[in-house]
C-alpha cells in the first residue's frame, strides 16, 4: 500500500514537473535569433540561438521574452521568434547553409554572414567602398543611450 502511494506521488510530481517545464519551454522558430541584453534591438547580443533550439522562459514583458539558452545565457528575444511547439532545426533559405542540419556549421555560416563577408566580396567585385557599411554599423547608439533618449522624449524634451 505504502509502495503504491509512493509510486503514485512520484508519478504525480513527475507529471506536474513535466507540465511546468512545457509551460516555460519554447523553441526558436526563425533561422537565427539574437538574444539581447535588453528589450530592444539596439542592446548588445549576449547569445545567438538557431532554429529549433530550445530555450527556457524567465519572464515576459511587452511582447519581449527573457530566455535562458542552452549555453546558460540569459537575455531578451521578441516573442514572435519563439514557438510553444517543437520546431525542426534548419530550414530557411540556402544562403548560409554550408552543411544542412549541422547546427554548429550553420552557426558559423550565420556568423560569417553577420560579419558581412558575402557583401564585402560583392562590394569588392563591384568596386564599391565597403567602409560605408562598417562606418554605419560602428556609429549607432547603444542600448543605454537609446533608453536615455526615450526617457528624455517621454519627459517632454522640446
Amino acid at each position: 500500500m505504502r509502495k503504491a502511494t509512493l509510486v503514485m506521488v512520484t508519478a504525480l510530481v513527475a507529471t506536474a514537473a513535466s507540465l511546468m517545464a512545457a509551460e516555460t519551454t519554447r523553441w526558436v522558430e526563425r533561422t537565427k535569433v539574437d538574444v539581447r541584453a535588453g528589450r530592444g534591438s539596439y542592446y548588445e547580443i549576449v547569445d545567438t540561438v538557431l532554429k529549433g533550439e530550445q530555450v527556457e522562459i524567465v519572464e515576459t514583458e511587452g511582447g519581449w521574452v527573457s530566455v535562458r539558452t542552452a549555453r546558460a545565457k540569459t537575455g531578451w528575444v521578441f516573442a514572435a521568434a519563439l514557438s510553444a511547439k517543437p520546431v525542426q532545426p534548419g530550414g530557411g533559405s540556402d544562403f548560409f547553409k554550408v552543411a544542412p542540419g549541422d547546427a554548429s556549421t550553420s552557426r558559423t555560416a550565420a556568423s560569417q554572414g553577420a560579419k558581412g563577408l558575402y557583401a564585402q566580396d560583392y562590394a569588392k567585385a563591384k568596386g564599391y567602398d565597403y567602409t560605408v557599411v562598417e562606418w554605419i554599423e560602428g556609429h549607432q547608439p547603444n542600448g543605454q543611450v537609446v533608453e536615455a533618449f526615450l526617457k528624455d522624449t517621454a519627459e517632454g524634451s522640446r
Binding site: G116, A119, Y122, A123, K126, Y128, Y130, V133
Partner: peptide, 9 residues
C-alpha cells in the same frame, strides 16, 4: 549590407 555599399557609391 551589399545594397548599402551600392548606395554609398
Amino acid at each position: 549590407r551589399a545594397v548599402t555599399a551600392l548606395i554609398g557609391s
